[in-house]
């Protein structure tokens, strides 16, 4: 059964804190990838950094979307 169950405030706050923490890691990862991407001169490496940046960007979107919709303050 997939009925809607109301999640209590305490659990929401905990989940929100956890997601904010994960989001911060992804943001810093994004900066790290970006700086390495800029450093790399070989096109194959640049391409790979671009792919990584795009995937991380999708993760950031995914996490922040879930966070604001499901763990609202």
């Amino acid at each position: 059964m997939t009925g809607k169950i109301r999640i209590n405030r305490q659990e929401k706050n905990t989940m929100r804190n956890h997601l904010e923490e994960i989001l911060a890691i992804h943001r810093s990862l994004d900066q790290k990838i970006d700086s390495y991407r800029k450093e790399s001169t070989h096109s194959e490496y640049s391409r790979f950094w671009n792919e990584l940046k795009q995937q991380n960007s999708e993760n950031i979107k995914n996490i922040s979307r879930f966070m604001v919709l499901k763990c609202n303050r």
């Binding site: 960007s57 950031i60 979107k61 922040s64 979307r65 966070m67 604001v68 919709l69 609202n72």
Partner: peptide, 11 residues
């Protein structure tokens, strides 16, 4: 409104 700011979602 579910909006995107700097690649992140906000309400």
């Amino acid at each position: 409104l579910l909006v995107i700011v700097n690649n992140e979602y906000q309400l």
